[in-house]
Design a binder for these strands. Structure first.
Length: 426
DNA sequence: AACACAATAT
DNA sequence: CATATTGTGT
C-alpha cells in the first residue's frame, strides 16, 4: 500500500499542469496526418467540440477537463470499494496505427521497430486497422516520461468516458473517431451484437477496414493487402458491418494485466466487468474477460491440486505470469463451494502497479508476434524495448519485470529460456 | 443485467 | 489449440 501511495505521488508529480495540456479548442491532428486522411483542416480543428452532448467534459476548458480526469482517477484509486463505478482514464489501445507509414497508416499493432506500443493483437482472423488514438502521438516522443503520457492519456480518458455511452451521438465528422478508438473499433466490428446496440446506423462514419485474409505477424510494411486503399478509411460500412469481430489474442503482456487486475481485486471482486474496467484496454470486452477468467480459474484450481510446481503442458500463457501470492493463497476458494468471501486476504499485492492498472498507457506492453506461437521466442526476436530500458516507468517497476523473468521451465520448451522480456543477456 | 459454468462452435 | 459463443441456472 505504501508503495502504491508512493507510486501515485510520483504519478501525480508527473502529471502535466493544465497549462501544459493541448487546448481542446486546438486541432489535435497533426497536419500531415490530416492530409493522409484527407481531413479538411476545418474539420480537424473542431475535433474536440463535436459530439457528446452528454459529456460534460468535452465542451469545457482544458483545465476543467483535466479536473474531470482527475476526478475519474480518484474513483479507482482508493480501493476496491469503487470498482463497479470506476472508469479508468487511459485505456491501453488494442490497436495502433503507425504514423510513419502514410501509405499503410492503419495496421494492426505489431512488433515493429522501436515503437513498442501496447496491447493485444489480432490473429489471423482479421486485422482491424489501427486505431488512431491520442496515445500514438507519444510515439514521436518515445521516451516520454510521465509528463508526456498524460497528454495522450487524458485525451484517451475522455474517449473512454465517451465511448461508454456517448459515442453514438457522434456526428459524421469523422475526426471524432480518430480520438475514439473504442468507437472506431466497435464500428469496425459492425456495431456488434451483444455488447452494444450500435446506434450508428445510417450515419456516415469513417471506419476501419478489416481484412480477414491478412496475416498479422507476417506482413511487414511490405503490403497494402488492405482492400484497395491502404488508408483504412472508407464510407462503405457494408464491409465493416459484415466482417466478423477479430479474435482476441491474449498475449503474455495482456494476460499479466489481467492477472494484476484480478490480484488487485481479490477473488471476491474479480468479476469480468470489474476486471475489464481495471485492465482498461480499449476494445476489450466483458466477454473477452469472462472467457479468459473462466479459463484462468480452471487453471488456478488445477494448479493448486498439484502443489508442487507442475509444469503443465499446455499453459504457456498462464505460466507466463506467475500467480500472485494473494491469488494462490485464496485459490482454494475456487474449489467446490464458491461464494465464499474472503476479501483481500493479503491486501493489495505488493507488485500491483496501480497506475499501470489504472490506465497509464503502458508502453512496455508491446505485443509479441501472434501466429499460434507456442514459444515465446518472439520476445527474443526483438520487441521494441527501447522505451522500457530507459524509461523506468513508475507504474511498472523494473522489479516487476524481473519477477516475470523466472518462470517454471516447461518440459515442452527444452532449451529455451522463457523470458517474458528480453534481458541484457539475450 | 451480470455472473458462473459447462458445452460446444470456430 | 485458443478463443468465442451459447445455454442454463443463479
Amino acid at each position: 500500500m505504501t508503495m502504491n501511495l508512493n507510486c501515485m505521488s510520483e504519478w501525480d508529480r508527473c502529471l502535466p499542469r493544465p497549462d501544459e495540456l493541448t487546448p481542446l479548442s486546438q486541432g489535435l491532428i497533426p497536419h500531415d496526418l490530416a492530409c493522409a486522411f484527407n481531413i479538411p483542416p476545418s474539420s480537424s480543428a473542431s475535433t474536440c467540440t463535436v459530439t457528446t452532448p452528454s459529456s460534460d467534459v468535452l465542451n469545457t476548458s482544458p483545465h476543467s477537463a483535466f479536473e474531470s480526469f482527475l476526478r475519474m482517477r480518484s474513483v479507482l484509486l482508493p480501493s476496491i470499494e469503487s470498482e463497479q463505478k470506476g472508469v479508468a482514464e487511459t485505456a491501453v489501445p488494442l490497436y495502433q496505427s503507425n504514423f510513419n507509414e502514410p501509405r499503410d497508416v492503419m495496421k494492426p499493432v505489431k512488433e515493429t521497430s522501436d515503437q513498442s506500443l501496447d496491447g493485444m493483437q489480432l490473429n489471423q482472423a482479421g486485422r482491424v486497422g489501427g486505431v488512431l488514438m491520442a496515445g500514438a502521438y507519444s510515439s514521436s516522443a518515445p521516451d516520454n516520461d510521465y509528463g508526456s503520457v498524460l497528454g495522450p492519456g487524458m485525451t484517451n480518458g475522455l474517449s473512454r468516458l465517451m465511448s461508454n455511452s456517448s459515442y453514438a451521438h457522434i456526428t459524421e465528422s469523422s475526426v471524432v473517431d480518430v480520438n475514439h478508438p473504442k468507437a472506431l473499433l466497435e464500428e469496425a466490428r459492425g456495431g456488434c451484437g451483444r455488447t452494444t446496440g450500435s446506434m450508428l446506423e445510417g450515419t456516415n462514419f469513417m471506419h476501419l477496414k478489416v481484412d480477414p485474409s491478412e496475416e498479422v505477424d507476417s506482413a511487414p510494411s511490405s503490403m497494402d493487402t488492405f482492400q484497395g486503399n491502404s488508408v483504412a478509411i472508407s464510407n462503405e460500412e457494408q464491409s465493416a458491418r459484415t466482417l466478423k469481430k477479430p479474435r482476441l489474442v491474449w498475449t503474455p503482456q495482456l494476460h499479466k494485466r489481467f492477472v494484476d487486475a484480478v490480484a488487485h481485486l481479490g477473488i471476491k471482486h474479480a468479476v469480468p466487468k470489474t476486471i475489464m474496467q481495471l485492465m482498461n484496454v480499449d476494445g476489450l470486452t466483458r466477454e473477452n474477460v469472462a472467457s479468459h477468467l473462466q479459463k484462468y480459474r480452471l487453471y488456478l484450481k488445477r494448479m493448486q491440486g498439484l502443489s508442487n510446481e507442475g509444469p503443465s503442458s499446455s499453459d504457456h500463457l498462464f505460466a507466463s505470469t506467475p500467480v500472485p501470492p494473494s491469488l494462490a493463497a485464496s485459490a482454494h476458494f475456487l474449489v467446490s463451494h464458491h461464494s465464499q468471501h474472503l476479501d483481500h486476504p493479503y491486501g493489495p499485492v505488493q507488485n500491483s502497479n496501480l497506475p499501470a492498472i489504472l490506465g497509464h498507457t503502458a508502453h512496455h506492453l508491446a505485443p509479441h508476434i501472434s501466429s499460434q506461437a507456442p514459444s515465446f521466442s518472439s520476445f527474443n526476436t526483438r520487441p521494441a524495448f527501447s522505451s522500457l530500458t530507459r524509461a523506468p516507468a513508475p507504474p511498472l517497476m523494473s522489479s516487476d519485470l524481473m519477477r516475470e523473468g523466472h518462470m517454471q521451465q516447461s518440459s515442452s520448451a527444452p532449451g529455451q529460456v522463457l523470458t517474458l522480456f528480453p534481458t541484457s543477456h539475450n
